[in-house]
Computed example of a mutant assay.
Amino acid sequence: MRPQRFDLLAFDWDGTLFDSTALIARSIQRAAVDLGLEEPDYDEAKYVIGLGLRDALERVVPGLSPDRYGDLGLRYRHHYLGSEHEVALFDGSVEMLQALKARHHWLAVATGKNRVGLDRALVTADLTKMFDATRTADETRSKPHPQMLHELMREFGVEPERCLMIGDTTHDLQLAANAGAPCVAVSFGAHDHETFGEFNPLFIAHSTRELHDWLIQHA
């Protein structure tokens, strides 16, 4: 028996389920410094979280010679992987996902991470069997292009109104809008919740517990 309102719940990863916002932003800053570039502003580094890595670096370090973005990406990964063990899922994320799974929702991840990075994170978090499908930025179009969400909807035969996107950035909410799907936002990730209004999220959660409770009651 399928849920009453949403069949498919698509979660962003970084900043929504995984408390990695600060680490990603710091890694971007340090990667730029390693290449002798001016350190990006912390808020600017946070803003690009959710995009594919190449898109994120091009936006936060504009004007860099195209042949140097590969080196910038390598330095980013060096710093991120060196400290990835220090961050974890937001408290309550596993319990929330388990409760939603018990309600027979299909659960998915739609992330700006690459496939290797997401698979590693899922293994570390012991969530490899939790999600019914996942999409990463290196195997489809980067957010906010709707392809990522359209592919997930097609996989399960779900219409846009039966799919809910949950994320912490305007990139996530724009992805949902571009795909014709409703969205829920969380305020504890990369973007200021005051920027979410134009996307008309059904709800803005200020904690994982608030998100859990809303999804159980309304999804």
Rank of each mutant, 00 (worst) to 15 (best):
N114M: 14
R115M: 08
R115S: 13
R115Q: 15
R115E: 14
V116F: 14
V116C: 01
V116Y: 14
V116D: 09
V116G: 01
G117C: 11
G117V: 08
G117K: 12
G117P: 11
G117S: 14
L118D: 05
L118I: 03
L118N: 08
L118A: 07
D119R: 15
R120C: 00
R120G: 03
A121C: 08
A121Q: 11
A121L: 09
A121T: 05
A121D: 11
V123G: 00
V123P: 00
V123R: 15
T124E: 15
T124H: 14
D126M: 08
D126R: 15
D126G: 09
L127Y: 04
T128K: 09
T128P: 00
T128S: 09
T128N: 03
K129A: 08
M130V: 08
M130A: 05
M130P: 00
F131G: 04
F131W: 02
D132H: 13
D132A: 01
D132G: 00
A133L: 13
T134S: 12
T134W: 07
R135Q: 13
R135L: 09
R135F: 00
R135E: 11
R135H: 06
T136E: 07
T136S: 14
T136Y: 05
T136G: 02
A137M: 09
A137L: 05
A137S: 14
D138W: 11
D138F: 10
D138N: 13
E139W: 04
E139K: 14
E139L: 14
T140P: 12
T140I: 07
R141W: 11
S142F: 02
S142G: 04
S142D: 01
S142I: 01
S142K: 07
S142H: 05
S142A: 03
K143R: 07
K143Y: 05
K143D: 03
P144T: 02
P144W: 08
H145F: 12
P146A: 00
P146T: 00
P146V: 03
Q147L: 15
Q147F: 07
Q147N: 12
Q147W: 08
M148Y: 10
M148P: 06
M148A: 04
M148I: 12
M148Q: 11
L149C: 01
L149I: 00
H150V: 08
H150Y: 11
H150D: 10
H150Q: 14
H150E: 15
E151K: 06
E151P: 02
E151D: 14
E151W: 04
L152H: 07
L152C: 06
L152G: 03
L152S: 03
L152Y: 06
L152R: 01
M153F: 04
M153I: 03
R154W: 06
R154S: 07
E155A: 13
E155F: 03
E155S: 13
E155I: 01
E155Q: 15
F156Y: 06
F156W: 05
G157A: 06
V158R: 09
V158H: 07
P160R: 02
R162K: 14
C163E: 10
C163D: 11
L164W: 11
L164S: 10
L164R: 10
M165G: 03
M165E: 05
M165F: 11
I166V: 15
D168V: 10
D168F: 09
T169I: 06
T169C: 09
T170M: 12
T170N: 11
T170W: 09
T170H: 00
T170E: 12
H171L: 06
D172H: 05
D172M: 02
D172C: 04
L173A: 03
L173Y: 07
L173N: 05
